[in-house]
Simulated scan of single mutants.
Amino acid sequence: MADDHTHVQDFFTPRAAGWDSRFPDDGAAYAAAVDELRLRPGGAVLDAGCGTGRALPALRTAVGPGGTVLGADLTPAMLDAALRAGRGASGALLLTDVGRLPLRTGVLDAVFAAGLVSHLPHPAQGLAELARVVRPGGRLALFHPIGRAALAARHGRDLSDDDLRAEPRLGPLLADAGWRMDSYTDEDSRFLVLAVRTG
């Protein structure tokens, strides 16, 4: 497990300081995806793999001042960047592995996860842990501000059906982890999967 963490941290640590400046126009896309979670004032939500916390202000707006917003990330440099950007004011930041969250079972109404799935060393276990902390009927948003084809092109790769985010792979993976996929959107302008906690 430590080796898995080292790989993720090695990827994100050198990128943390300049992360937001590389993607300066994503704010509206994050806010639109958060809207799709249909959070209510006073609700409790986790941004899993929050990085620099770009979703935290929109999540705070959605649940209001009486709600609970948590941001969890494994990489200290990303959380430091979130604090420098002032996003700690929107939610509590946790340095933790989203595969082993320090939260009670069923305590959350929703989880927002931007770009997380492809960085989970054990995706089935990670998605099951996210399901554990969400109440039955709660929601999950798996988001990326560009779609799979655009992301593959950005990285000089071909689009592959082996991608965890391909609908035929992701649906069963979510179902096995305790989620029911409600919608699947994969367009150039965004990737957004919405799922509901079963049980």
Rank of each mutant, 00 (worst) to 15 (best):
P57W: 01
A58H: 01
L59D: 07
R60V: 03
A62C: 04
G64M: 12
G64P: 09
P65T: 15
G66I: 08
G67K: 09
G71E: 10
D73V: 14
T75I: 07
T75C: 13
P76R: 13
P76I: 13
L79W: 04
A81H: 00
A82M: 05
R84C: 15
G86C: 04
G86T: 00
R87M: 02
R87A: 03
R87V: 04
G88Q: 09
G88D: 10
A89M: 02
S90R: 00
G91S: 13
G91N: 15
A92L: 14
A92V: 06
L94E: 00
L94M: 03
L95V: 10
T96I: 10
V98Q: 13
V98Y: 14
G99T: 06
L101V: 06
L103D: 01
R104D: 04
T105R: 11
G106N: 06
V107R: 11
L108A: 02
L108G: 00
D109W: 05
V111G: 04
V111A: 07
G115Y: 11
G115K: 15
L116M: 06
L116H: 06
S118P: 15
S118E: 13
H119T: 05
L120D: 04
H122C: 12
P123M: 09
A128E: 09
A128Y: 05
E129Q: 08
E129S: 07
V134H: 02
V134I: 06
V134C: 11
V134G: 06
R135S: 11
G137M: 07
G137N: 04
G137E: 07
G137D: 11
G138H: 08
R139T: 11
L140S: 07
L140Y: 08
A141L: 14
P145T: 06
P145L: 07
G147Q: 11
R148V: 10
R148P: 05
A149Y: 12
A150C: 01
A153E: 14
A153D: 07
A153C: 04
H155G: 10
G156D: 12
R157H: 15
D158G: 05
L159A: 14
D161E: 15
D163M: 12
L164F: 00
R165C: 11
A166Y: 01
E167W: 13
E167F: 12
P168I: 12
L170Y: 01
L170W: 02
L170F: 01
P172F: 01
L173H: 01
A175Y: 00
A177D: 00
A177V: 03
G178K: 00
R180L: 10
R180E: 11
M181K: 02
D182Y: 01
Y184Q: 04
T185A: 08
D186I: 02
D186P: 05
S189A: 15
S189P: 12
R190C: 15
L192T: 10
V193R: 03
V193C: 03
A195Q: 06
